[in-house]
Amino acid sequence: MAERYELRFSGAGGQGLITAGIILAEAASIIEGKNAVQSQSYGPEARGGASKSEVIISDAPIDYPKATVVDACLAMTQEAADKYANGIKEGGILLLDADFVHNAPEGNFTVYRLPITRMAKDDVGREIVANVVALGAVIGLTGVVSKDAGEQAVLRKVPAAFKDLNKKAYNLGYSKGKELAG
């Protein structure tokens, strides 16, 4: 693994992207024992607006806690893509919710598309788990933590009654992400 791997999750406030970042940081730091820092930037609104969560993962101690050049970026809405899908490094990864982001930013990185919100709604059964589908897809696509560490971290975070739902969401996202990665 690279000395420093930078991920950014972005979408609308309330979509659970900050939670997705926290889960990934737990998977990396608590379950896999690497160094991880999760941070966020958000507006004063409780819902709506564009929000982002960043996770830096490294084998070495992490100094600067924010992204410098992003290895992998997720954008769930057009506003988030316009505002936050930047600074992606050459050869990096940008994953978009295919139904909500129609104009992908241009750059020397690979753009992948999945209907993340629709998968959550139609295949898993609840739109609210779109963030977990997205998290699974990012992990499948990047391999930044193991499939198992990601799943453990998801299950630690959710109430007992929602474990199956989230497990299904995570695994669906992971397999689709893995497929995209080829």
Binding site: A25, A36, V37, Q38, I62
Partner: peptide, 9 residues
């Protein structure tokens, strides 16, 4: 705010 809101182990 950065250190206050960021998460680390």
């Amino acid at each position: 705010e950065i250190v206050g809101h960021m998460r680390e182990r």
